[in-house]
Simulated assay, not measured.
Amino acid sequence: MFTLEIAGKAVAITNADEDQAQELFTSEEFKDDLKAFTSDGEPLWDGKAPLKVRRASEDEADAFDDAMEDDEEDLDEEDDDDEGGIDVMFLVLVDDVDDDQDDA
């Protein structure tokens, strides 16, 4: 597992391999999300601070595994065909995001 750090703060974790994590966390789409998402009213990323992808700590990996186990318990059995995908979890509290945003 790999963690995204912004200005020394662990922000997100993924179960992707190193190359996939690097590609995901540094993609323009994910960087746009980091600038749009807020925590305590502040953007997760200012667009300037360096983004660092590193191996996840044991505590971060445990938190990820716990969250994924809880999430799996909430899924219906028919949704179990999603195995093998890449998951991302934020390690900071993200303010509510308007799911009704238009991309057009």
Rank of each mutant, 00 (worst) to 15 (best):
D66P: 02
P50L: 01
D32F: 13
E18C: 06
V92P: 05
E77C: 06
K31W: 07
K52D: 07
T26A: 07
M1S: 14
E5S: 10
L34G: 01
T3C: 01
K9V: 12
E78Y: 10
T14E: 00
A61F: 06
F37I: 08
A21G: 02
D46A: 03
L24M: 08
A12P: 02
E58N: 08
E60S: 01
D95V: 00
L75R: 15
A56E: 00
D59G: 09
S57V: 04
V92T: 02
V11C: 02
A36L: 13
D99L: 15
Q22R: 14
D81T: 11
R55E: 14
K52R: 14
D96C: 08
A7E: 15
E18Y: 09
A67R: 12
K31V: 11
D96E: 15
F2S: 02
L75S: 09
G8L: 03
D102Y: 12
F30G: 03
D62H: 10
A67N: 09
W45P: 00
D74M: 13
D98I: 03
L24H: 02
G8H: 05
K35E: 12
D100M: 07
D81C: 10
E72S: 07
E77L: 13
D102P: 04
R55H: 09
A67G: 11
D19P: 03
D81L: 14
S39H: 11
Q20C: 05
E18V: 04
M1A: 14
E18L: 07
F2Q: 02
D87E: 14
A10V: 04
M1D: 07
E23M: 08
L51T: 07
D87Y: 15
A12K: 03
E78I: 14
D98S: 09
E73A: 10
E60T: 03
G41I: 02
D19S: 13
D70Q: 11
L75P: 03
V97Y: 15
R54H: 06
E78P: 03
Q22E: 14
D98G: 02
D71M: 13
F90G: 00
A21M: 00
D87Q: 12
D95C: 00
A21E: 00
D70P: 02
E18Q: 14
P50S: 05
E60W: 01
T14Q: 01
M68E: 09
A63L: 12
D40F: 10
E77P: 03
L44G: 04
